[in-house]
Design a protein around this nucleic acid. Structure first.
Length: 282
DNA sequence: AGTGACGCCTGGGAGC
DNA sequence: TGCTCCCAGGCGTCAC
């Protein structure tokens, strides 16, 4: 499940694998994967053919490749999207939807996506950020992320802290796994109301968010259900470092109390029953 | 403007 | 065995 660390690992792979290369031809096998490119497949492929990739960029969970045309090939991996850089003659993946061949005849870029929540599109801009992504907040690893502005905005919210962490217009890149891990490290239950958290508490949480994201990148991300791999097809190793996510009834690594699982936004939240007390009324 | 619910997808696993 | 149901969940859209 690609969140910021997984997407960053993919970005690094794209930087090594496709930056500086010129696209020769693009084929779209499944229109749904470019559904956000409203002009359709013909327009999509013609905007890419002959263009050179200038960089590999990321904000939160979005990726984009700025092109020499002033546009950018933008993508989101959704739940199960993969961007693979593979030899042109390698076997076709079952859920291969878009192929980009390069003029140098070397390895090609493939978009593979089982659940098809992800997708690609070509958009104007891209240096530094396509306007398409204006509504996506800076992520906490962005040097220009404004800590005190984040703290203030969180405390003005009237919601639970986990909902706030998952709100990509407030802070981007965090999904269910890293939200739960960060909250565990901070000793906060996700239902804790944002408007009564102290400034130091929010700052501490932000520090834990940064730490867990950084550690996960160093481990190549989390390949919890094997749907996430790097551009080289390699799984990440951070699953073994997860303290709470997916660990219902197992002992909390800090206190030994059983990890609890609760329904949350049509999915699950994992937390320690002792270290992360549920707020009253929550 | 902020808040929260909903729908989109597929495959693996549980249960019958 | 084979069927049905549930679950994973990021994000755009929509209602309030």
């Amino acid at each position: 499940m690609p969140e910021l660390p997984e997407v960053e690992v993919v970005r690094l792979g794209l930087e090594r694998g496709v930056v500086g290369r010129t696209i020769r031809e693009v084929s779209v096998g499944r229109a749904r994967s470019i559904r956000r490119h409203l002009e359709g497949a013909g327009d999509f492929t013609s905007r890419l053919a002959g263009r050179t990739v200038l960089a590999a960029s990321r904000r939160g969970k979005y990726l984009w490749l700025p092109l020499d045309s002033g546009e950018a090939l933008t993508g989101h991996l959704g739940m199960s999207g993969q961007l693979l850089v593979v030899p042109a003659d390698s076997p076709l993946q079952k859920h291969l939807h878009v192929r980009l061949e390069f003029a140098d005849g070397g390895r090609e870029l493939r978009f593979v996506d089982q659940r098809t929540f992800g997708g690609l599109l070509v958009v104007p801009g891209g240096d530094p950020v396509p306007p398409l992504l204006d509504h996506i907040a800076r992520d906490p690893l962005d040097p220009q992320f404004d800590d005190e502005d984040f703290v203030a905005r969180v405390r003005r919210r009237r919601t639970g802290i986990k909902r706030a962490l998952l709100d990509q217009s407030l802070i981007s890149g965090i999904g269910n796994i890293y939200a739960d891990e960060s909250l565990w490290r901070a000793g906060l239950h996700g239902a804790r109301p944002t408007d009564v958290l102290t400034k130091p508490a929010v700052r501490r949480l932000l520090a834990h968010v940064r730490a867990v994201l950084g550690e996960a990148i160093a481990q190549g991300g989390t390949s919890f259900d094997a749907l996430y791999v790097s551009t080289e097809g390699v799984s990440g190793l951070f699953e073994r470092s997860l303290a709470v996510y997916g660990r219902e009834d197992q002992p909390c690594p800090r206190c030994g109390a059983p990890i609890r699982r609760e329904a949350f936004m049509n999915r699950s939240s994992f937390s320690c029953a002792r270290c992360q007390p549920r707020p009253r009324g929550g």
